[in-house]
Design a protein around this nucleic acid. Structure first.
Lengths: 135, 135
DNA sequence: AAGTACTCGCAAACTATTTGCAATTAGTCT
DNA sequence: AGACTAATTGCAAATAGTTTGCGAGTACTT
């Protein structure tokens, strides 16, 4: 298992709980820690919420998952492989749409040229009003 | 006082506390509710933190202030008049830089054209690595 | 098979924010 | 100026989300 390799390199283990958390993140796409815990509990009811938090942190350090801020408060997690889109959060209806990173290419380039800032557009959501709510 | 007018229109009052909160937001630029409470307490020690929260909410409804998400968890508040720049948050050193909205004009236009999404670029921070930390 | 250090579950601690309620007060009316 | 009414305040307690200390358990190394 490839995941095991990423972990062992840093002296970490691939425990059943850790694997379950990772799989849940991969299945769910966008998910809060609570969502992930709920998913894992479907098959493994005993898992503790703090274990989910700790494993998300660990998996993020190793580079297997990443988190994004979609709204007020909670972060949501993604598998690192799937982080190829940015998030359009609608302030009116709360929906979360996706858009390919390309639409921001120009913007990212501007920031790099003018400010030397290397942007990660996927980390924070793009906030505004979706097409449905604009009308 | 112009502020009073905005408030009374909706049946709201301009109390000393509310005025202090608004002035603090204007002076501080970027500030968390805690920062604002601390500022207000310099001249008015008795003010309660929940009053600050309630007034920020009220002032936001009226349109005198707005909030932005700069980091994990906490929101930061700005006077509405000053919301003419976006925030570049560095994930390494935590610094917050500013950039004029213009650099995002192109990006915003893309989202409008392709997705009908009306973007508010100032609401969430732009996350990445600042020039100093890149090197 | 045994040892070591990483992990787990649990409960309690924390941080940030919100709410209920009784007392107070800004703005309106007379 | 004085009275009235609904908005607002302070306080304390509640809530939500996340983190931490600790003893028991266990994955991986040799």
């Amino acid at each position: 298992m490839a995941d095991q390799h990423e972990l062992r390199e840093k002296g970490l283990r691939l425990t059943p709980q850790r694997e379950l958390v990772l799989n849940a993140v991969r299945e769910l796409g966008h998910a809060t820690p609570e969502d992930i815990a709920a998913k894992v509990r479907e098959t493994h009811p005993g898992i503790n919420l703090s274990t989910v938090y700790r494993n998300l942190e660990t998996l993020e350090n190793v580079g297997l998952v990443q988190h994004t801020h979609l709204g007020h408060g909670g972060a949501t997690y993604h598998a690192a492989e799937e982080l190829t889109h940015l998030h359009l959060v609608c302030g009116d209806c709360g929906s979360v749409g996706d858009a390919p990173i390309d639409v921001a290419a120009n913007f990212v380039q501007n920031l790099a040229d003018d400010y030397g800032f290397r942007t990660d557009v996927t980390h924070f959501a793009i906030y505004g009003t979706c097409a449905a709510c604009v009308k």
